[in-house]
Design a protein around this nucleic acid. Structure first.
Lengths: 172, 172
DNA sequence: ACTGAGACCTGCGGATTTCGCAGCCTCGAT
DNA sequence: ATCGAGGCTGCGAAATCCGCAGGTCTCAGT
């Protein structure tokens, strides 16, 4: 019936050992399709996903579990903290002298920091911080981030309103 | 048994009609607790959540459905596009003359833009874009974003490496 | 004060989904 | 040629999801 699908799938699986770079696990088209399904609805049943991607329920379950174990994806509830209320949020651009990686690690360790990315451009690192209120935000930025040895300067962008937040890169 | 929990819950529910601001739905402590559970694991069974927050399975189900319908939260799979492979990502700071809201809407309409937030600081808007490759990224920034009437200037920060990405603001 | 509407919760079967496991197949290595 | 690992399927049993029928409480209107 859909033997061609099976054929192409096994062809892709065959070279799944060849990984594109360092430790990044290779993802074949079927896993991508599964992720797309879960980007639309994180609670979609395995059987429905299987039907969509041409796999049995059990196979989908095994793949999803592996993707979660490998840390390739996570299935979570996401909200806009500002909508949920009583919080102050900001993006902080950081300039570093010396080991950028080390500063990034330090930021990652802070519970108020939700998002850390190393960038090219006039900032070395962008970090998103979520705080209780203005005092808390001020404290995190001035006392904790600026205090890190190696941080040359920071610039803050306080969030006023979140306009868009999606996870649909796969479905285009 | 846990009558005090019930008492405090109904006390919070009583004034749930008084909403803090415009259309933002009020969230009581129980809904917050439910969201926290789902931030840890988006597929956690309703019964388990109910046990954790002191509600029946059916009640949790109804609340979760309402939170989803209201758009307060979404349950989705999230990944790092860079890890998944073959993509270029960047944060773009935008300066606007005139109606900031209008430009934000235009950015929101672009499928390559995953994240749009209006900010205070030296940028009016921060937008995160996810692209196929460098050419695509260049195209989106130069041809589409800069071309919007009202965009005074932009500055781009190309992502090199995502270090942290969590959704655990509730659990601190 | 009474009443009806609305919001929210619980309890309960039936349908659906999840889960674990045994078996099969393919590929690559010994 | 044989063996082991990885991956898929099929299948019951257990757990979960789902819809619905009440019950309680609050609030607004008569």
């Amino acid at each position: 019936m859909h033997s061609e699908v099976v054929a192409s799938r096994s062809a892709e699986q065959r070279d799944s050992s060849r990984e594109p770079r360092n430790g990044t696990p290779h993802l074949d088209a079927v896993s991508l399709a599964i992720i797309e399904q879960l980007q639309e609805d994180g609670r979609r049943p395995y059987a429905a996903i299987g039907k969509a991607v041409g796999l049995s329920e059990a196979a989908v379950r095994q793949r999803v579990q592996k993707l979660l174990d490998q840390g390739v994806m996570q299935i979570v509830a996401v909200t806009d903290p500002l909508t949920v209320g009583f919080r102050r949020q900001a993006m902080v651009g950081v300039n570093v002298e010396g080991d950028v990686e080390k500063i990034a690690e330090a930021l990652t360790a802070m519970s108020e920091v939700e998002y850390v990315v190393m960038t090219a451009g006039s900032f070395d690192i962008l970090a998103e911080v979520v705080c209780e209120d203005d005092d808390h935000l001020l404290d995190v930025i001035n006392k904790r981030i600026r205090a890190l040895p190696g941080v040359r300067s920071t610039e803050s962008f306080v969030y006023l309103k979140l306009k868009k937040q999606t996870y649909m890169w796969g479905t285009r």
